[in-house]
Design a binder for these strands. Structure first.
Lengths: 113, 113
DNA sequence: GCGATATTTCCATAATTCTGGAAATATCGA
DNA sequence: TCGATATTTCCAGAATTATGGAAATATCGC
């Protein structure tokens, strides 16, 4: 993931309603949620929710698919994963100084601690 | 890390200047950087940089320490790490559907030392 | 086609964040 | 003490983002 993409994803998640929406979608799993269901859970007006979903979609954090009258929204795990990867690289910057996160590095070099 | 804290960290990083600043600090390592050095690298006016550093500090992503006339700023790896932990939990939501990230889960199945 | 349901787009207002010059503060060395 | 350097605070204008009502669009079942 490049920096611009990470930036967009971070900004998208850095808003209470959007972070909450994303978490709902993650918890909903592969089935995702209908926009209306999400709206009920968040208690946000339709127009407001649409605007936030546009932001999340633009950051590729969610995908949506029309199913008749309903639009089903799903968390894009791959993108979140890529974001975590970006942050992990930018957290540890090649050394092991990140503590717990070093257990997170996928085989970089030899480590023993 | 709780959601409010993660929210603040995400919002702090969701801005080009601040993300760049944080990356510079991570790359600078444990020694950190003087505010002036960071200002030169980013090419931002002092007041602007101060405002951004205040945001990062408020999100606990950086720490600073006065050294005579210079204020040395350092990335707070622990906080970034906690943020990654938060996102990882909210990415995978208890199942292993996240691909590579599942290798990232600390003590779930408990393997290795 | 019609009415109902689901969601979006349009648009204006409100709220927040960003920016940077100038003045203030802190520290140093002589 | 003074003058130089490093950084912050103050402040206000500029820019961006958020909000939500109303109208528009899309799809359904009949």
């Amino acid at each position: 993931m490049d920096t611009d993409t990470a930036l967009e994803a971070l900004a998208a998640l850095g808003h209470e309603t959007r972070l909450t929406a994303f978490r709902e979608l993650v918890q909903a799993g592969a089935g995702g949620l209908a926009v209306g269901e999400l709206r009920d859970r968040l208690g946000a007006p339709g127009a407001t929710l649409t605007a936030h979903l546009n932001t999340l979609r633009s950051a590729a954090l969610v995908t949506d698919e029309r199913e008749g009258r309903v639009i089903r929204v799903r968390a894009n795990y791959a993108q979140m994963n890529a974001l975590i990867g970006y942050l992990t690289e930018n957290c540890c910057a090649g050394d092991e100084s990140c503590g717990p996160a070093s257990a997170c590095k996928p085989t970089k070099g030899g480590k023993k601690t």
